[in-house]
């Protein structure tokens, strides 16, 4: 493990990283970031791990389901029990 010793160029890049990994950054600035990453291993690691962090969280977020009993209580509270579509609970 090492700590990032950053230069002015690294600092300038950091504020744009979110939009860079989202693909919403202006092409010209993207090109500058890519050029910088060719010679700065630390920044390349930061960009790749930042992207990976978002991917991992996106992946895990799908795992949170609405439990069947929570849904039942919600429909009961809202007096919508007649409209409740029960999920397959055989799993």
């Amino acid at each position: 493990m090492s700590k990032h010793v950053h230069t002015e160029k690294c600092s300038a890049m950091l504020g744009d990283l979110s939009e860079y990994i989202d693909g919403s950054l202006h092409a010209e600035i993207c090109a500058q970031i890519e050029e910088h990453m060719k010679t700065c291993d630390n920044c390349r690691v930061v960009v790749n791990t930042l992207r990976k962090t978002v991917e991992l969280y996106e992946h895990c977020s799908d795992d949170v389901e609405l439990p069947g009993e929570v849904k039942e209580r919600l429909f009961a509270k809202l007096e919508l029990k007649d409209f409740l579509i029960k999920a397959d609970t055989s799993k």
């Binding site: 493990m1 700590k3 990032h4 950053h6 690294c10 600092s11 890049m13 950091l14 990976k52 991992l56």
Partner: peptide, 25 residues
């Protein structure tokens, strides 16, 4: 406003992208 100097100080450089998915998750 975002302060890149402050945010980047002490930043950990660990390339965990190389880990297999089963290790990451």
């Amino acid at each position: 406003p975002f302060d890149s100097d402050e945010e980047s100080s002490g930043m950990e450089i660990v390339d965990f992208c190389c880990l297999p998915e089963k290790e990451l998750l």
